[in-house]
């Protein structure tokens, strides 16, 4: 019996870092149900889900990269690039536009991956290059102009419903399942975690470390390009200088708040989704209660600090 008594504090902290985010969401939802008018209406929930969907999609890729002890700052620029390409190829149909923007993601991811895995740059520096350059290129492609998108198929992706739920949300949910499956059940997922846990050991074990790393960055960038595409579809215009601006920070926040350690070796997919939802709920709650955006930002900062503090316990043993 003493065993359990002794183990309790450690388990609690660990439990908090794993499930704290769900608890926080629950509390926030309860608060809103009682104190925020019209919170529990379908139209409100709908808006929240639509707004959070692109962040979730980007955060999924970010979680994978962070699982390898990396980071990808270029996701926002990838969204901008994807957005910039859509008006150019939409003339050939919605499929062509999708292919073009996803290929842009593959290209950026490949460059990031090669810089990290083969050239050996630090991920933060490697992806910084395209963080700056990617958006620049996107603005050049669009000549700095905002372009309206009027293709009905694309607009359906952004604003349509399927079985009463926005298509956008369906796509995000499907991608969550795919990524969760990738991490848990595939060779690729296991290798990714092993690399994050101990790269030299993984290399010596004969694993194709570089290939896995390049693939991870490609997956991350492709997810970002899908998010960019969906954003364009939702706002029905392509603005390379605004799409996905600062989303890398929201994505990293979602990953960290969701309990994925920045030290690599572990990826919490559902936690990441919950992290994104939590931040969205916080912002929504603040806005509904007429608080300044600056106050919202400070509250976000506090949540990030709490998440990092709770996760800190892991490293000590």
């Amino acid at each position: 019996m003493t065993t359990q008594v002794a183990a309790r504090p450690a388990v609690n902290l660990k439990g908090l870092s794993q499930y704290g985010v769900y608890l926080a969401i629950l509390l926030l939802v309860l608060y809103n149900i009682f104190f925020t008018p019209y919170f529990l209406t379908w139209s409100n929930l709908r808006i929240q889900l639509i707004q959070v969907a692109p962040i979730v999609i980007v955060a999924l890729g970010m979680a994978l990269v962070i699982g390898t002890e990396g980071i990808d700052l270029s996701v926002g620029s990838v969204m901008a690039l994807a957005a910039a390409l859509i008006p150019l190829y939409l003339g050939y149909g919605v499929v062509a536009a999708i292919i073009a923007s996803v290929l842009a993601g593959v290209a950026v991811g490949f460059i990031n991956g090669v810089l990290v895995a083969r050239v050996g740059l630090q991920p933060i520096v490697a992806t910084l290059a395209l963080f700056v350059g990617g958006r620049g290129l996107a603005v050049v492609i669009t000549h700095g102009q905002l372009k309206d998108v009027r293709n009905p198929d694309l607009i359906y992706l952004g604003s349509g419903d399927l079985l009463g739920i926005p298509v956008l949300v369906w796509v995000a949910a499907a991608l969550v399942l795919v990524v969760a499956f990738l991490v848990r059940r595939t060779v690729f997922g296991r290798r990714l975690l092993a690399i994050g846990g101990n790269r030299p050991a993984t290399e010596l074990a004969g694993l194709p470390v570089k290939r896995v790393l390049i693939t991870v960055y490609i997956v991350c960038a492709v997810l970002a390009s899908i998010a960019g595409l969906l954003s364009v579809a939702r706002i029905q215009s392509s603005d390379a200088s605004a799409v996905g601006l600062l989303i890398e920070l929201s994505a990293i926040t979602a990953v960290v708040v969701g309990g994925t350690p920045l030290t690599g070796g572990r990826v919490r997919v559902l936690g990441t989704v919950a992290g994104a939802l939590l931040m969205q709920l916080v912002i929504a709650t603040m806005i509904k209660h007429n608080l300044q955006p600056s106050t919202t930002e400070m509250v976000q900062a506090v949540i990030i600090l709490i998440a990092v503090y709770v996760a800190r316990e892991r490293k000590t043993r």
């Binding site: 290798r191 092993a194 846990g197 050991a201 004969g206 694993l207």
Partner: peptide, 21 residues
């Protein structure tokens, strides 16, 4: 520690690591 085991993964994952395919 530095080049052999992956401390944060389980015994199971560590053993299977090199032969996953």
């Amino acid at each position: 520690k530095a080049e052999g085991i992956i401390a944060g993964l389980s015994v199971r994952e560590n053993i299977a690591l090199a032969v996953l395919p």
